[in-house]
Design a protein around this nucleic acid. Structure first.
Lengths: 104, 104
DNA sequence: AGGAAACTTGCGCGTTTGCGCAAGAACTGA
DNA sequence: TCAGTTCTTGCGCAAACGCGCAAGTTTCCT
């Protein structure tokens, strides 16, 4: 069941939204930072990735709109995390097709 | 090894190119048509997807540049096919994250 | 209430993307 | 060689994207 038999147009649109959300190196970097299952704040991620906070907020909004990450408030900070385990499979599959080789 | 430990920037860029290539419903439709492992011509795919031939040629060029499909000439027609089995895993993982449900 | 910290939203700018159309290139068959 | 088929490439346009900056919102602390 690698590929669904016959997705509808709406299903393809949703897949396209998800793929589009992954189509940016900074957003992929974010997902790597969240891949351990932990939560990280916007400022933390923006520092890590090396972009301004508003920019990071936009990127995270894209990821959230695609259902790739979820967020929750804790005090004045907002913590983001991977929405589902299947996201890790997706990122892994992406890296494999892209020709990445896991060290070892 | 769902996610590579620490991809380089270049690896992330390549992943982004692949993801971008998947970020279009028409191109996803093409991959569904090729998912059975068969080969299809440009005109065939353009008819299936419902777009003009030049447009389809562009889409296929994007997929080929990302290493997702390969092509070969046979007479006057050019046949496209999935480049690697891992592509099917990727598309499947994408559909799963996008919320697609395989019938059953 | 006032101020600071963390995040989101709005706006303008340059770049990229997908499309339609026309023209070019590669191959076939008469 | 000449016409026909198939695919690719170039061009112009409208829409979307990523970015930087300023302003707004939410929360916390005193």
């Amino acid at each position: 069941m690698a590929v669904a038999a016959s997705p509808t147009e709406a299903q393809r649109d949703r897949s396209a939204v998800v793929a589009r959300a992954l189509a940016d190196p900074k957003r992929l970097f974010v997902l790597e930072n969240l891949a351990d299952g932990g939560e990280r704040s916007v400022g933390d991620l923006s520092r890590c990735v090396g972009c301004q906070v508003p920019n990071m907020s936009q990127h995270l909004a894209v990821l959230r709109a695609a259902g790739i990450v979820t967020s929750r408030r804790q005090g004045s900070t907002v913590l983001y995390r991977i929405a589902d385990r299947s996201v890790l499979d997706l990122v892994g599959a992406l890296q494999r097709v892209a020709g990445d080789r896991v060290a070892g």
